[in-house]
Simulated scan of single mutants.
Amino acid sequence: MIHFPRVRQSPLRALGIRLFAAIGLVLLIVLVVFIDRRGYRDITDTPLSLLDCAYYAVVTLSTTGYGDITPISQSARLVNVLVITPARVLFLIILVGTTLEVLTEQYRTNLRLTRWRKTVKDHVIVCGYGTKGRSAVNVLLENGMDKRKIVVVENSPAALRSAIANGLVGVEGSATRSAVLLEAHVKDAKSVIIATHSDDAAVLVTLTVRQLTAGKVRIIAAAREAENAPLLKQSGAHHVIVSASTAGRLLGLSTSAPPLIDVVEDLLTPGQGMALAMRSAERQEVGQAPRDLDPLVIALVRRGKVVSLAEPAGLTVETGDMLVYVRDDRSASLSQ
């Protein structure tokens, strides 16, 4: 089942709006009848008072219609046709507003679902919205990705509600099932991020994605243990992030070389100072040495492979290269 983010409204506010709308409509009809009160006849043959006009408006709008007060002039009957009858329908709509709201919400959801299925393409699917999944989504958003391009697949109702509350499209179900991934349009996705709670589930999701997409979608998986990384790569993952070993390395750095952990945290924390970024090489940069470029370039990506600057001297930038560089993230955040 696909869930879309909803704009929530307070129940008291919704009830208050309907109540004021109903009272306002009744007062309007009372005013209309009172202005043309000579065009109405009471069975008692007495002129209509303001109370009589209010009584007629209420029984008419509620479709009770006792018939003790009736329009007799042409103008009064015209007002009944053009004003009071439409107002009666509107009054009933207000009274049954809750039912209509549910039907309208269902129609709106179906319309959004149909539109989404027609337009979703080159999106990122995040399987699992735990700590790793939320962090991955935050990085995507910080790098400028539209929320509408992110789809969360989650089996936990609480985690799914959290994703929807954050404005993301959520698909309820296990990512190990083909039907669930097809609901997320995995065949049209740009990449799939697998952030499940266990490595065995990550392997199953990887195998399922590879089977459905024939290897055409980039798969990035997270593993708890380093020994499971080769298995994930054999299953079809293009990149595997080992959370346990990565955390262990950072813990070791924080003990043996404390300044290095500060640098790593700075690179990984958005808007704090330095940040890693990647862009295509510009025309005027082709033929130059990477170390001579500004900003600081630390690696090249050439034909899908990383070229380290530790390569022999004479390395120059070629057409089509991607530059991995360190940018000043503080200036970027201030400009935004």
Rank of each mutant, 00 (worst) to 15 (best):
A22V: 13
L204G: 03
S178R: 11
D52C: 06
H197P: 13
S62F: 04
L95G: 06
V307M: 03
R303P: 00
I261C: 01
Y107T: 14
D68V: 11
V102W: 11
K121R: 15
A54L: 14
K132M: 15
A14F: 03
E142F: 08
G167C: 07
Q234D: 08
A313D: 12
D146T: 07
A136W: 00
D122W: 09
V286A: 04
Q288Y: 06
D266W: 01
L231S: 05
V297L: 06
V32P: 02
T246V: 09
L253Q: 02
K216T: 12
D294M: 05
S162C: 11
E183A: 09
L92E: 04
V171G: 00
Y40H: 11
F34V: 06
E101N: 13
S162I: 09
K118A: 14
G173R: 02
T70M: 05
K121W: 09
A289Q: 07
L95V: 13
V209L: 04
I261H: 00
V192F: 09
H239I: 06
G287H: 04
D294R: 06
I193L: 14
L253H: 03
Q234W: 06
I220L: 13
I43Q: 12
G24I: 02
L31F: 12
T206Y: 05
V102I: 15
E172C: 11
R134S: 11
E142C: 07
Q106R: 14
V102F: 10
A184P: 02
L28I: 10
A184V: 07
L141V: 04
L92R: 11
N166G: 01
P270L: 04
V180H: 01
L251C: 07
S254T: 08
E227I: 14
G215D: 05
I17N: 10
E172A: 15
G167I: 03
D68R: 14
A14G: 01
A223G: 07
Q336T: 13
C53W: 00
R210I: 01
A332K: 09
V59K: 02
G144D: 06
R77C: 11
A214F: 14
V102T: 14
L50K: 05
I241L: 15
R210Y: 06
V83P: 08
A202M: 03
A163R: 00
I72Q: 10
D45N: 15
S256R: 04
Q336I: 14
L15I: 08
V286P: 04
S156H: 06
T60N: 03
V264I: 12
T99S: 08
L250V: 13
G128V: 02
V7E: 09
A277N: 15
L260Y: 10
T213E: 06
I29D: 00
L103H: 11
I94Y: 09
H197D: 13
